[in-house]
């Protein structure tokens, strides 16, 4: 019966079915086939034998990863970089939006917006190049330290500075662009609500707490869901460009480890298993946070 309905629907709207076909084919080849390819996480994969001929080894790749020395370090670094981002970068965009929302002059507001979006459009390679130059032993930070009585040193090659450099530069690169969503939400709050609050005698702070924040909350929650779902996805390209063997202790994250094991050392089965671990945790996180949010706030993505 349902098949019949579908067929009838196809006859009436043939063109629609043909229009969606190319993107479905793309999706199948470039998204769903690699998902199927994840079975090599359970194989001792070899290039010569391929996916159909390689030996099945169950969870050995996973147990190897969990018992190896890199598991704790890469997981810890991933969570640390992500946690710092959530702690500083996430609220920074909200604060910037609130600050911009207080500006009366439309021209000034637009100018600040334009310049604050700029770092977002600079390529990761150029941004990383700038970070390296500034944090080098002859760079700006080092010469500032010299003026304050320190001695010149290269900050980017010392593990104890990596997380700060990463987090601060990440705020620089993304705070402006991330504020767009919140600015949109703020401009969507009805002026009448503020008017009513003023008539009730609410000052600026009370208006902020009783009108602005509640109006902003749904957007904050949606962004928080997205952000929490992405906790395992630290800006991989940036770490790859900035880290070096001397900073692995604080900089090496799960995805850079996957890259080194898989692409460089060609340990295909093992690195796929590590990547799969990462993706599964991500999936659980995003579904979990979505469910929590549905339960408590009626705001959800799915």
């Amino acid at each position: 019966m349902r098949m019949k309905q579908l067929l009838a629907n196809y006859r009436q709207n043939k063109l629609l079915y043909w229009l969606i076909l190319p993107s479905l084919i793309f999706l199948f080849i470039f998204n769903y086939i690699p998902m199927g390819g994840l079975i090599i996480a359970f194989q001792d994969y070899s290039f010569t034998r391929g996916i159909w001929g390689s030996e099945w080894i169950g969870f050995e790749n996973f147990t190897d990863f969990f018992s190896g020395m890199y598991f704790g370090r890469t997981l810890g670094n991933t969570l640390a970089l992500s946690g710092l981002d959530l702690l500083f970068n996430f609220p920074a965009a909200i604060i910037l939006a609130l600050m911009l929302n207080e500006v009366r002059s439309a021209r000034f507001k637009r100018t600040i917006q334009t310049v604050s979006y700029m770092p977002h459009f600079i390529s990761m390679v150029v941004a990383a190049g700038l970070i390296k130059e500034f944090c080098d032993s002859s760079g700006v930070i080092s010469s500032l330290a010299v003026q304050l009585g320190g001695k010149p040193q290269s900050y980017i090659s010392q593990p104890q500075y990596f997380r700060s450099i990463f987090t601060i530069s990440e705020i620089w690169k993304s705070v402006g662009f991330n504020s767009i969503v919140y600015l949109a939400a703020l401009s969507g709050i009805s002026e009448e609500l503020y008017e009513a609050a003023r008539i009730d005698g609410a000052g600026r702070w009370r208006q902020l707490f009783h009108v602005t924040f509640p109006g902003l909350l749904p957007t904050v929650i949606i962004m928080l869901i997205l952000r929490c779902g992405a906790i395992m996805n630290v800006n991989f390209e940036k770490v790859l460009l900035l880290y070096s063997p001397s900073t692995y202790a604080t900089a090496d994250i799960i995805s850079t480890y996957v890259y080194r094991m898989g692409i460089i050392k060609q340990k295909i089965g093992f690195s796929t298993a590590v990547g799969l671990f990462n993706s599964v945790i991500s999936l659980i996180l995003v579904l979990g946070v979505n469910k929590l949010s549905k339960m408590y706030t009626e705001t959800s993505m799915f």
């Binding site: 479905l24 999706l27 080849i29 470039f30 998204n31 769903y32 086939i33 690699p34 998902m35 199927g36 390819g37 994840l38 090599i40 996916i51 779902g229 995805s255 996957v258 890259y259 898989g262 692409i263 295909i268 690195s271 796929t272 990547g275 799969l276 990462n278 993706s279 991500s282 999936l283 995003v286 579904l287 799915f302």
Partner: peptide, 19 residues
């Protein structure tokens, strides 16, 4: 849903590379 699922889960770097 077929489309949206790819935003939640993907094969990752190595299976994409093998493809």
């Amino acid at each position: 849903m077929i489309f949206a699922f790819t935003m939640l889960f993907n094969g990752g770097m190595i299976p994409n590379y093998l493809l």
